[in-house]
Design a protein around this nucleic acid. Structure first.
Lengths: 221, 221
DNA sequence: AATCTTTAGCTCAGATCTGAGCTAATTGAC
DNA sequence: GTCAATTAGCTCAGATCTGAGCTAAAGATT
């Protein structure tokens, strides 16, 4: 039975709707280099080109769930904590039609990617050393990578290894090496130590078997 | 004529699509208080309740354009530089259906709102003094306001009046009073001056007719 | 085993930052 | 006019931050 509210209620939602996609920059550190995960496109459109893993949003699906699903499907990896970056809304961005894409970033340690990287449909691209690969991606994906790196740098400037890339326990040297790769520059040893130490919990153990004097081992708070 | 690519191309976009809306927290400073602009809902749904101005996205419309249009239509004001904050995607957020809302923030000086505020469908709510009004808003709008305020505070901690709320030229006192309202706390006079002065351009003029010793007048860089 | 290289952890002087306090210049109250 | 109140602009001592440099402790090299 038709109530008076049925018509306006339905009509509100009768606007044309965009397709909504998610695209994710999965960042990691490999061989002392900050890298982003790319997948070779299998769809007809832009077939064979390297691009960020992504997917269209399914009915009533949460964005974070779509990100995790796309990483599972496209790259066979378990994402961790996808974080929204920005909505890319240029109507001319995607020639298949009107597609909004919500860019995300996730941080995953290299060990969790090893399996996926055996496939020749999955690769890493170094941010610093392969700018041409990143700049060549379709659908504004290179802008997404830029925003993802910016976010990661800000996060790593604030606290010790927020992306949990290091296995615990770790030394301050290991932590600093990681942060230097993320920041893309050297960091002052003592300034770094003074800022990070209060944010870590000591394990009471010492490193050994490594080069140089043994040092305290730490864990994330 | 049907080409082979027509079918797969179209099918990619045949996923169910969400409605996409924009909602905007228009922030301003009035009577020494940080305020957000609310409009009384005219739609059937939640009719009469105070909420953030918003609108459904129209076909191929840019998000920023939808924000500016919604501010014009709902509140009769000219927005300035809408900035994306976050996509709210809880499928249960809106009982009218599956609606994603892209929250935005804009900063508008009080003078540009005076006309709109004559309407009884438009009001300001003080962030600090009327928390119950803000907490009572539907569709997760109170979370959007929280994110908007957080963004504004971060922006005002970085540079002098990035929202251009003050008319130029202004004194450092006027600038600091504004920043204190935004920050919600007092700021040290000399620390503030030392941080902001290098980011301003002097006009060579002095204030006069004000209480206290005249001071230099400044403009934004 | 002697020496070199690497890294840890500390110390200290110099640089920078902070905020209280001083004097100056103006308006408002009387 | 006199005095209180308000604000500007500066100064300086104390606090904090910075980074070079020192010594120590380990593995690597010879």
């Amino acid at each position: 039975m038709k109530t008076p509210t049925d018509v306006p209620r339905a009509s509100l939602l009768n606007y044309p709707r965009p397709s909504v996609a998610v695209d994710t920059a999965v960042l990691t550190v490999a061989n002392g280099s900050l890298c982003v995960l790319l997948v070779r496109r299998g769809e007809k459109d832009r077939h064979g080109e390297w691009a960020l893993p992504g997917s269209f949003l399914r009915e009533r699906e949460r964005l974070a769930d779509a990100v995790l699903r796309s990483l599972r499907e496209k790259a066979g990896i378990s994402g961790r904590v996808p974080r929204q970056l920005h909505v890319f809304d240029d109507p001319a961005r995607d020639d298949r039609g009107w597609v909004l894409s919500v860019a995300h970033v996730d941080v995953v340690p290299l060990a969790a990617l090893e399996e996926a990287l055996k496939s020749d449909g999955v690769r890493l691209a170094s941010i610093a050393e392969e700018p041409e690969v990143i700049a060549g991606m379709p659908y504004g994906h290179s802008e997404m990578v830029a925003k993802a790196v910016e976010w990661l740098r800000a996060a790593y400037a604030e606290s010790p290894d927020p992306g949990a890339l290091l296995d615990e326990p770790f030394t301050l040297k290991e932590l600093r090496d990681l942060h230097e790769v993320v920041a893309g520059r050297t960091l002052m040893r003592d300034t770094f130590r003074r800022f990070m130490e209060p944010q870590l919990v000591g394990t009471g153990q010492m490193s050994d078997g490594t080069r140089g004097r043994p040092s305290r081992l730490w864990g994330r708070a």
